[in-house]
Design a binder for these strands. Structure first.
Lengths: 167, 167
DNA sequence: ACCCATTACTTGAACTATCAAGCTTCAAGC
DNA sequence: GCTTGAAGCTTGATAGTTCAAGTAATGGGT
């Protein structure tokens, strides 16, 4: 259950250092960049935009709160606050789940859909300009594989999610 | 001065989508993971820890506010608040710059150095476990190169920084 | 000697995130 | 049909971030 041996740690060597710092720098610069871009053009932070996208892609433009939180990799608490804010903007509304009275759907409104339609092109352009336009096809492929691996390592073991007896 | 053409955008194709989402997922999971790890073990968020590290590596354990902000890729405003908090913890103190009365140094205290010494091993271990232990040497190399490129693209043109007539 | 644009840093307000409760509903076991 | 543990979601307090505006010192020019 412990994370660290805490004795005689294997420090990062020079190349690992450089790699790690490059990652840290790039990731904060990128996140800041996209946050600003979306705050300016869509009036919301990057992660909120991601929530609208998720909803827009879902059948009937709706998702249960817990599932949306899981997809977006955020806590339910954070989602509650976020949806409250988006609701104030009129971009999302809540609906009760008929089959489970505890449940809530977050539903993308027409207005929300419109915001998405209007701002998506600028956002894709920003992502292309910051990332894809600068990387070769091989680098893009690598990046995908690498990030996939890292993400899997940090997921609370979704493997066997439908095989509960294995957990 | 405009970012986006906004007409007929080149959407991401399926593979680009997968790559981008893998990146997004991994980066938020990783940042959350390290934030929690450091909050738990060192009592501060990841970025604050990074500030202490920077200071620790600098001559006389001190850096001008502006330079520290630039290194850490954050705004001076954010840094002011952050240093205020770290000062309350006794891990950093401010010192006036003798040669420029506007200037301030952030200085790592002995106490701050001690926190660093105590918590660094656990943090390196967490980084290894989440990233380096899962990637082949080639993947590590790729990651470094890719992130270097992305970071450069987002920097406010530090190239030619001492050649002001080129800007 | 005096302007004045620039640089260095800070501040306060509004917003967003996190954490630890909390409330309600569900469903499994008795 | 109760009880009880867990699931689904929310809430409020505390902490961190952002943005716009502020003060103060500097360094050129005139």
């Amino acid at each position: 259950m412990n994370t660290a041996p805490a004795e005689d740690p294997r420090w990062l060597d020079d190349e690992e250092q450089r790699t790690w710092r490059a990652y840290l720098h790039a990731s904060v610069l990128l996140e800041d960049h996209l946050d600003r871009q979306l705050q300016r053009d869509a009036g919301m932070p990057h992660i909120y935009y991601g929530l609208l996208v998720q909803l827009g892609e879902s059948p009937r433009r709706r998702l249960r709160m817990t599932e949306l939180a899981r997809n977006a990799k955020i806590t339910r608490s954070r989602l509650s606050h976020a949806i409250a804010r988006l609701e104030k903007n009129g971009w999302v509304r809540r609906e009760d789940c008929p089959s489970d009275k505890r449940g809530q759907f977050a539903v993308l409104t027409d207005e929300g859909m419109e915001v998405l339609r209007r701002t998506a092109p600028g956002h894709v352009a920003a992502v292309r300009q910051a990332v894809f336009d600068r990387l070769s096809p091989e680098q893009q492929k690598s990046l995908g594989e690498i990030m996939q691996i890292v993400a899997e390592g940090l997921q609370p073991e979704e493997a066997g999610a439908d095989l509960p007896w294995l957990r």
